[in-house]
Amino acid sequence: MSWISLHRRLERHTGLLIFGILVVSSIGGMVQLLPVVSEGAHAEPAAGLAPYTALELEGRDIYIRESCSTCHTQQVRPLLGEVRRYGPYSRSEEFVYDRPFLWGSKRTGPDLQRVGGHFSDEWHRLHLTDPRSVVPQSIMPAYPWLATHPADRHGSIQARMRALAKLGHPYTAEDIAGAPAALAGHTELDAVIAYLQSLGRTRTAGEAT
């Protein structure tokens, strides 16, 4: 009966109950998160992995805006069926410049982590503007507005790159200074295509799976 009477004390003291819940609920999180997050502070990027260029970064932020990761994953699991279909399985060092991560949780459409280079820019242009013109059975939405919006409509590309540089992405002063010029004349559609073509660029099908 002793644990019951011990618990009675907890039930009669609001502060004790709050403290108890706080302690008991934080143990699991601390054991799992602290080692992983502290390891992340000195995570090494994959060999040859550079941060996204200004145009790719703009494309990635549009990908986030349109919630593309609701239907497209960016995570190839180390399973034969997946490696055969999509390419080499995903490794953590490939994602060190991904804020936030865009692995997704649902494949309504195919995985995109290795999509870079699989299709031509022109194919992507048609597909994003009118998906059913190139894939008749597709259920993807059309994104006609991407072609009419100029890239970096809000003129924030330098602020975004500076923020990422603050978080440790190795952008140089020239990268940031040249960003508006790199985006000039491009549409949002160009930016999304540049981002999609950049995906999976650090590893090729020839590498170990």
Binding site: Q32, L33, V36, V37, E39, G40, A43, S92, E94, F95, V96, Y97, D98, R99, P100, F101, W103, R160, A163, L164, L167
Partner: peptide, 11 residues
Amino acid sequence: YSLFAGAQDAV
């Protein structure tokens, strides 16, 4: 932008 990146952000 998230303070966590990639695999850390996922966890």
